[in-house]
């Protein structure tokens, strides 16, 4: 067997989900015997056969990626409970294994993937999707680039044909629940429990957290970074639509049109609103020149 074949065979074995008892499966996805696969390239020693030696790597892989994902989605895990979160994570990572040199990007597809897998979350599906979006937005806002923002004077000189961009650390979210404070509370709770117990939270099974009553309400949210900390800011729907259009590269006039489409804000008040929003975005340093 050449190097390439060994690496393909071993990677497939290592990344195959474990059994419920955290052992390597007896059969590969294509039905072949895992013992035979292991024996085809792994040498035994006096204590472990080929299967058992390969199994060590299979376990290590799952412990590593599951714990990395759980670190980034603390609130989602709390809401679903550790068992449901673990099964969901295995299903997600089987479909979306890491395609990046850094585990930072492990959860990048989770919000979109979760949206089409209601069977894995149960009755809190819509809330779970929102929480996943909010937590992934934190990862992006935490360490994405910070560009030089436009000044108030530069913003005042813009016209309808101007093309702008937003700070790369801004993540815009359309949610069904105003769930950002719940996420922050669950993070705090987890931090307290971990420090009080003196244990990593992944070491014991946790039931779904008891949640305060939270009503479904369309919510538009931005995650962004100020200095070194990540904050969440609620946006009016029109501001959200406009920022999204700008982020997509639309001209300023098109972005404004997109923002006020179907808006209940009376035409007479729109100019004042725009002025207020742009002033606030300028102060936050959100608006940048379009990258060439």
């Amino acid at each position: 067997m050449n190097l390439e074949s060994i690496q393909r065979e071993m990677a497939a074995a290592v990344m195959q989900p474990l059994t419920r008892d955290e052992n390597m499966r007896e059969r590969a996805a294509d039905g072949r015997s895992m013992a035979e696969i292991a024996e085809s390239f792994v040498a035994p020693n006096s204590r472990l056969n080929a299967f058992e030696r390969l199994e060590i790597y299979n376990r290590q892989y799952w412990y590593r990626v599951l714990s990395a994902l759980a670190e980034d989605f603390v609130a989602l895990r709390a809401v679903l409970g550790s068992r449901k979160f673990a099964s969901l994570s295995v299903a997600y990572l089987t479909e979306h294994p890491s395609r990046s040199f850094t585990m930072r990007n492990l959860g990048s597809h989770l919000p979109a993937w979760l949206r089409v897998h209601p069977e894995l979350t149960g009755r809190r599906h819509s809330l779970a999707v929102d929480i996943a979006k909010i937590e992934w937005a934190f990862v992006v806002a935490f360490d994405s680039a910070q560009r030089a923002p436009l000044t108030l004077a530069e913003i005042a000189a813009l016209d309808g044909s101007s093309q702008l961009s937003l700070q790369p650390h801004i993540e815009l979210m359309e949610l069904n629940y105003p769930a950002e404070n719940l996420v922050l509370d669950l993070h705090q709770r987890e931090k307290r429990q971990t420090s009080e117990a003196g244990l990593g939270s992944d070491e014991e099974e946790q039931p779904p957290a008891k949640l305060p009553r939270i009503r479904r309400k369309p919510t538009w949210l931005a995650a962004h970074r100020v200095e070194l900390s990540v904050f969440y800011l609620r946006l009016p729907r029109e501001a959200f639509l406009m920022l999204t259009a700008l982020q997509e590269g639309k001209m300023l006039a098109e972005a404004m049109e997109a923002g006020f489409a179907d808006s209940r804000i009376p035409a007479a008040r729109r100019a004042a609103k725009l002025q207020q929003w742009f002033k606030s975005w300028a102060e936050l340093g959100w608006i940048c020149a379009r990258e060439t």
Partner: peptide, 25 residues
């Protein structure tokens, strides 16, 4: 070591077979 194949990453430090082909690569 190795740890990725075809753009998929295991994020592990997997051992190499000690072959001449592996030396060259």
């Amino acid at each position: 070591c190795w740890g990725s194949v075809d753009g998929t990453y295991t994020h592990d430090l997997l051992p190499l077979p000690y072959t001449w082909e592996a030396v060259e690569r």
